[in-house]
Design a protein around this nucleic acid. Sequence first.
DNA 1: CGGTATCCACATGGATACTG
DNA 2: CAGTATCCATGTGGATACCG
Lengths: 171, 171
Amino acid sequence: MGHLREPLNDMQNCGLPSALEVMGERWSFMILRAAFNGLHHFEEFLGALGIARNILSNRLARLVEHGIMKREPLPDDRRKIEYRLTEKGLDLLPAMLALRQWGEKYGAGVPSNPVLCDERDGLPIAPIGIHAHDGRLIGPKELEWRDASEVGKTLGSYDDCEVKPQLSALR
Amino acid sequence: MGHLREPLNDMQNCGLPSALEVMGERWSFMILRAAFNGLHHFEEFLGALGIARNILSNRLARLVEHGIMKREPLPDDRRKIEYRLTEKGLDLLPAMLALRQWGEKYGAGVPSNPVLCDERDGLPIAPIGIHAHDGRLIGPKELEWRDASEVGKTLGSYDDCEVKPQLSALR
DNA sequence: CGGTATCCACATGGATACTG
DNA sequence: CAGTATCCATGTGGATACCG
């Protein structure tokens, strides 16, 4: 893939590149989705996703390597291997759902199935959204970027917020 | 990329593949992140991301093509072109943040900067999570998959929920 | 069953030069 | 400034055959 190049600004102190290192690729999310739907075995993924064997092998290895899934041979037949989501993998559920809901809203229009529901009342979950620290749902227009060093110091005052203009991206 | 293969099950009635068609790739998310941070011009993206010109050109075109960004020549100098997020693009913010927060939690440990804050009080937003329809925050263990046709019909009863076993994926 | 080994087609990505 | 054109290296992905 050629060589590496050094980034010119601080676009890198961000969790996004690190997340994309594993998940920034089509099949990783599809495999994750299948895992969340209860698939555990190589051949299950193979049939469900329509992915090539070598690619599936490669991606599963990568997911295991990054601690997103773990592989454990079954006690009865050591040849059978189960792939299971780790805590780290389970923590990707919000990201996966947000992406899926977005695709459902703007995509071909096929309603996603099955639907993730609250087991208390069986009702579908709410759209993944952005909430303030107090739980209030907030839209993109009510948000601003602040430098990490400023956060928590100046409550309610924008004067010393250098990144406020970046809010312009939101409109 | 070789040929296509037909999927074997209903893994496809899901918004995820449609979302990944555009965003299932490293640079798309990085460009989006830059756009949310207020970058608008080709050369700005170029310098900020450390991406090759041809790839940036290709990705921007794809984002525009999919209605995630729009390009508009500036009135004063028609050569200058501004890239701006559309509504559809803005709607990707939750997915982008969820991914970023996950990467921040499990990645190299670099705290992301800048931080997205509620403009009312300047406090950082809450972690992106899964909420029930009534707004209650719920964890992966309190969730179940239900067939779309069942949703809303049987409130509180699990008896006719065929996909309940799939919950096994969550542990 | 869960892979590995090949082979091939094409996509991705970087560097560089050129263009209107 | 915002690309396009070209070249080259590597990655991704599918098909198939083989293996313990």
